[in-house]
């Protein structure tokens, strides 16, 4: 059996390393980077400090992947990746927390006087809460997450309607089919495309 035995120094203790989680994050990274608009160089397993954000209540939240969307300026992008391969389970419950965290972190940024313009994307292989699908990223849904599921994320602060609108606009949900990868351009093709498009800028 192969082990990463010798120098596991970069492994974070903050999140258990689960094969499905790692595989899910790998797929999310490959898929998003294949768009040529996004790069995700850092992950929670090896770069925990940079993948961590602070909520209003001071609690740290660790994201699976951190990178950016190319643009001028670049947009910071945090990925919550879910490796579920069946309907049900804890996905819907975890998504409530995801919404509450997105609001709380954005509110903390604004409270600190700097809007970091962070986007929070939920990448999963399996749909969830399908009857509410159209409302998953609305401000109303985020408000419910804060009031009914995770009031601790507010740390006794009132919900700010403007912040709610800002945070909700920066949340997205994507479902990635595993076969999606079969129809992506190959790394070699993408390298050629990128050398022409130069989305990122000069090498």
């Amino acid at each position: 059996m192969i082990t990463q035995g010798r120098y596991p120094a970069y492994m974070s203790v903050a999140e258990p390393i689960q094969q499905k989680g790692i595989d899910g994050a790998d797929l999310a990274k490959r898929w998003l980077e294949s768009t040529t608009w996004i790069e995700l160089p850092f992950d929670a397993y090896h770069n925990a400090p940079i993948c961590q954000l602070t909520r209003l209540d001071g609690k740290k939240k660790l994201y699976d992947l951190f990178g950016c969307i190319y643009g001028s300026p670049k947009t910071p992008l945090y990925i919550e990746s879910k490796g579920y391969d069946s309907v049900g389970g804890k996905q819907a419950k975890e998504y409530w927390e995801f919404l509450a965290n997105a609001y709380s972190i954005t509110a903390q940024d604004l409270k600190d006087g700097l809007d970091a313009r962070r986007e929070f994307w939920w990448i999963t292989r399996m749909p969830f809460s399908s009857t509410d699908w159209a409302d998953l990223t609305t401000a109303e849904r985020m408000k419910t997450a804060l009031e009914a599921h995770h009031p601790e994320a507010l740390a006794d602060n009132e919900i700010n309607v403007d912040t709610l609108a800002i945070a909700a606009a920066r949340v997205e949900v994507f479902v990635v089919n595993r076969r999606q990868e079969d129809f992506m351009l190959t790394p070699q093709e993408l390298a050629l495309v990128e050398s022409t498009l130069n989305r990122k800028g000069m090498r």
Binding site: K29, E33, E39, P41, F42, P187, Q188, A191, M202, R203
Partner: peptide, 10 residues
């Protein structure tokens, strides 16, 4: 040194 880090294809 390129401008990419731990990238899938660059």
């Amino acid at each position: 040194l390129t401008n990419y880090f731990n990238h899938t294809y660059m």
